[in-house]
Design a protein around this nucleic acid. Structure first.
Lengths: 133, 133
DNA sequence: CCGCATCCTCTTGGATACTG
DNA sequence: CAGTATCCAAGAGGATGCGG
């Protein structure tokens, strides 16, 4: 979306709205934050929850969330590697926002948008999970 | 941001979060909705509140909001033309979301992001206003 | 006053292949 | 397992000029 980071936006009273949006935009950040709200997750655990995301995307989105101070990345020096992602204190402050987004979506996408082909994708998800583990 | 519209997303429980985000994303939609929450506005009235937006962008963003059923566009057949934008019923259901975004921004951008060069831009805003009206 | 049309640039993000 | 690197397509979004 090409929002400019850490710079002036429009500076009108609605400025704060945009400022927040620019932090959680990025095609997958909303969902990632949502899932992390429910607890710490490993890299592939997140992937399994986001069937359509590519490794590259997941990595970059997580890096951005980390840079913005929302997500904590913990690397365990083991073989095989293990990396856990959890929300920081700051990340948890986004909970009301994420929940508001989810609440609206739950109420208003039921009649109209999204909803289809979900079955297919969940199939993909579970079979992918089998293949991985 | 290239979110896919009206299609399956990731279909995980966080689906609703993304579904909502994809509707209010677009570089300016958040702020536009915020301002319209406070009442009906004419085209140039919105422009004055968004110093950095181009006509083209304002038009396209408004059209998308209209298409998604959030905004009502009323054209008065006068000379010079007069067009008013207001929120629909559905648009007003987004209020909790917008407010959550604003609340977070107000609390968390004060110490860190945005805040600078606002003076300059507000100057531009007022002088532009003088030139127009 | 409120646009639309055109052109053009830059970012986002997808596909794929390779590493410690 | 959890990445990185490279390449590439699509489209968001800026600048500018015209029109009713």
């Amino acid at each position: 979306m090409t929002r400019i980071r850490h710079q002036s936006l429009d500076c009108s009273p609605g400025c704060a709205v945009e400022a927040t949006l620019q932090l959680i935009d990025g095609k997958w950040k909303g969902v990632i934050l949502y899932h992390l709200l429910q607890g710490t997750l490993r890299f592939n655990a997140i992937r399994k929850r986001l069937p359509n995301i590519t490794q590259r995307m997941l990595t970059t989105q997580l890096r951005e969330l980390e840079r913005d101070g929302f997500v904590l990345r913990t690397v365990y020096p083991e073989v095989p590697p293990k990396v856990e992602y959890s929300l920081t204190q700051r990340g948890r402050t986004l909970k009301p926002v994420i929940m508001a987004l989810k609440a609206w979506g739950d109420e208003h996408t039921a009649f109209g948008y999204v909803t289809e082909t979900c079955a297919d994708q969940n199939d993909l998800l579970t079979s992918a999970a089998k293949g991985i583990e």
